[in-house]
């Protein structure tokens, strides 16, 4: 019954860490592109908030919908 509780924090961290790192990479790419974009669809600060607080989906939404001059 208590086997599940005995998973300690460091082990949990080592499992979850790659997820966090990939999310951070996505977020950084999105932020850099957002900062460099001449024109975004909608105000830029709104996209920065979406990217920062929308986790994976915020970054994806920016990649797909954020930039105007992109097919």
């Amino acid at each position: 019954m208590n086997i599940n509780n005995s998973i300690d924090l460091s082990q949990m961290l080592s499992i979850v860490l790659p997820l966090i790192i990939i999310q951070l990479i996505l977020m950084v790419i999105a932020l850099v592109l957002c900062a460099k974009a001449e024109q975004t669809r909608g105000p830029k600060w709104m996209w920065i908030l979406i990217i920062l607080f929308g986790n994976m989906f915020g970054s994806i939404a920016f990649f797909i919908f954020g930039r105007r001059n992109e097919g």
Partner: peptide, 12 residues
């Protein structure tokens, strides 16, 4: 950057 972020999303 599609060649970068799409694989990353799939990996995630």
């Amino acid at each position: 950057f599609k060649l970068l972020w799409v694989p990353l999303v799939f990996i995630l």
